[in-house]
């Protein structure tokens, strides 16, 4: 350090004479990121607002007003996609919150094989979603699938997980939870580990039970983790595409279509305007649901 200062002093006179002192935090540092982000993300997002109002072939577009949106709200299968998206997001995020918290409590307690359990719960997060989807499509096969064969051993007749239209969306949501619960768990573990031990000490002296510890210390004090898990998995659930596509392609029929799979299907069929309208719908859906949710979670946090 002393060395640096000395050599620095030797150079200083020349540098001071420099005509203009530049800011050590130059604005052009924003430039590369801003160009890439602006051109490839912001520009298309803004353009989507216009193109969603057109009949569009990529080469020319005809302005048709709100027709695409009207169609979105009129066609039963498009409406179905909209409802499915919300159901899917609510189910996956709430299951991840509950299971993630329970697993985190379990994995921060004095349990044997903790390291193994943490790894095994977290590993699916890193495996390709499509790989997981294909694997579970096979495991959920109605007659030959391992899940139903296992249930048969217990004397239970397994359902047609992915072929029953009333069940397909929930089956995919279940696999989503299987793959994503590890992330919720590690977020909760980080939150729980950060709670000062003193609280539990004090509670122990006061004779609190395990259950009281959980409801009066752990749960309120890992609220930041809860909001992170809810918001992350809720946005993820609303945007979900690859798992649905790998497992059911929105089927049977349109039973498990989500907005994201509708966007892809309309794109494939060449209805670019309608597909883009789907994008705008998804955007609005996320904004309408997630912004109030975020504000609610943060406000409550401030009160405590």
């Amino acid at each position: 350090m002393a060395d640096m200062t000395q050599s620095g002093l030797a150079v200083t006179p020349a540098r001071i004479a420099a005509p203009r002192r530049r800011s050590p935090y130059p604005g052009w540092f924003f430039l590369p990121a801003a160009i890439i982000y602006g051109v490839l993300f912001l520009l298309p997002t803004v353009a989507s607002l216009y193109f969603s109002l057109t009949r569009w072939t990529l080469f020319n577009s005809t302005f048709i007003g709100l027709d695409n949106f009207a169609q979105f709200l009129r066609e039963p299968f498009l409406i179905k996609g909209l409802i499915n998206t919300v159901i899917y997001a609510v189910i996956t995020s709430s299951m991840k919150v509950v299971l993630g918290l329970l697993l985190a409590v379990l994995l921060t307690s004095q349990i044997a094989a903790r390291g193994y359990l943490r790894s095994v719960v977290f590993f699916p997060v890193l495996v390709s979603t499509v790989g997981v989807g294909i694997t579970f499509t096979v495991l959920m096969h109605p007659t030959n699938g391992m899940i139903n064969e296992g249930l048969a051993l217990l004397g239970i007749k397994g359902p047609g997980w992915l072929v029953n239209p009333n069940l397909a969306l929930y089956s995919v949501a279940l696999v989503d939870v299987w793959k994503g619960v590890g992330l919720a768990t590690v977020i909760y573990i980080a939150g729980i580990v950060a709670i000062p031990r003193d609280y539990y000490e004090a509670a122990r002296i006061d004779g609190a039970t395990k259950l009281q510890n959980f409801f009066y210390i752990t749960l309120p004090l890992c609220r930041p983790a809860t909001s992170t898990v809810i918001i992350l998995s809720f946005i993820g659930g609303l945007r979900t595409f690859d798992l649905i596509w790998a497992m059911t392609r929105g089927g049977p029929g349109f039973a498990s279509d989500t907005v994201a799979s509708v966007i892809y299907k309309q794109y494939q069929s060449g209805f670019y305007g309608l597909s883009t309208a789907g994008n705008v719908v998804l955007f609005v859906l996320i904004a309408v649901l997630v912004v109030p949710l975020t504000m609610m979670l943060n406000r409550k946090e401030g009160h405590e």
Binding site: T45, S48, I235, I263, T276, N279, F283, I286
Partner: peptide, 9 residues
């Protein structure tokens, strides 16, 4: 938050 606008991209 915002899902990328696919076709405009």
């Amino acid at each position: 938050m915002i899902p990328p606008a696919v076709v405009p991209t």
